[in-house]
């Protein structure tokens, strides 16, 4: 398309430019504040670039948040792997082995995605206590796997709907059964589905806070809880919370920047009906 510099185009770019600045402002603020020494941080000069760049806030925040980062890493990797594998199997059944009532079951699954989690929090807390899982990571992993099932099953079901049924039929005529069709035909085609689903689950679980604060004891707190505690005091020097925020954001931001396409597909799968 030929582009002319008409007034409308100029207005378009000016408006977009202003919006870009507005959207980047919080990130800029976090970075400048994290790079200042505590003595240099003051409200009237909050927007100004530091006179001396001070990287030590990052190593200090890393020291404080290291246990939380390790907890979150274990939690996120385990829960993502389990819920993605289960979601794949469920999606396979929901799209290729439908039975009477499977659509109703699927809709009942989806409902679990839309409940405010406060409504299951008290029984979840009690159940984990009764199972001796309260306070530690295994209990939190269990919660994330179970409540992750609706979205992972949904993404895989819609993904597998694109695999032609004829492919399944011909494998069946060749004598393949339920599991061998999965391992030989469906699974090899599933790589993009696994990428989309596991990225989605990774960011969701990494960012989760409500269960982290109510279901784990101090030594097992995930990163979100650690960061909230770091930033929560009244007399905080703001360089540490900002450096901590950047550290907590880096894993998901990396995913988003480098694998953004897949992230957006997960995001759309969660809302647009397939």
């Amino acid at each position: 398309m030929e582009r002319k510099l008409s007034p409308a185009t100029i207005v378009l770019y000016v408006v977009l430019g202003i919006l870009v600045i507005l959207y980047l402002m919080p990130a800029y603020m976090a970075l400048v504040t994290a790079l200042k020494s505590p003595a240099e941080i003051s409200l009237p000069t909050a927007w100004e670039w530091p006179s001396v760049i001070n990287w030590s806030s990052f190593s200090e925040a890393l020291d404080l948040l290291k246990p939380n980062l390790v907890n979150s890493l274990i939690l996120t990797v385990c829960a993502t792997a389990l819920s993605t594998v289960l979601g794949s199997l469920n999606g396979y059944v929901f799209s290729k082995w439908t039975f009477r009532g499977s659509e109703i079951i699927f809709t009942l699954f989806l409902f679990g995605m839309f409940i405010p989690y406060q409504v299951i929090l008290i029984p979840l807390f009690q159940t984990l206590r009764a199972m001796n899982l309260y306070g530690g990571l295994p209990g939190l992993i269990l919660a994330h796997v179970v409540y992750g099932l609706p979205i992972t099953s949904l993404i895989f079901r819609n993904f597998y709907a694109q695999i032609p049924t004829a492919l399944i039929e011909s494998a069946r005529l060749d004598g393949a059964g339920f599991f061998s069709i999965y391992t030989r035909v469906v699974f090899p085609l599933s790589i993009p589905g696994f990428v989309v689903t596991s990225l989605w689950q990774f960011t969701q679980i990494w960012n989760e806070f409500l269960w982290g604060i109510t279901l784990t004891r101090h030594s097992e707190n995930p990163i979100t809880v650690g960061l909230a505690q770091l930033a929560g005091g009244q007399a905080v020097s703001w360089n540490l919370p900002m450096a901590g925020s950047i550290l907590a954001a880096i894993p998901v931001l990396l995913i988003y920047v480098f694998l953004g396409r897949y992230f957006i597909r997960g995001l759309l799968a969660g809302s647009v009906k397939g």
Binding site: L19, P26, F209, L227, A228, P241, S245, A249, Y256, I264
Partner: peptide, 15 residues
Amino acid sequence: FLYPMSLSFIVSGTI
């Protein structure tokens, strides 16, 4: 325009 969506509410809330 989409990057804020990938952040945790705790991160964005702190900032």
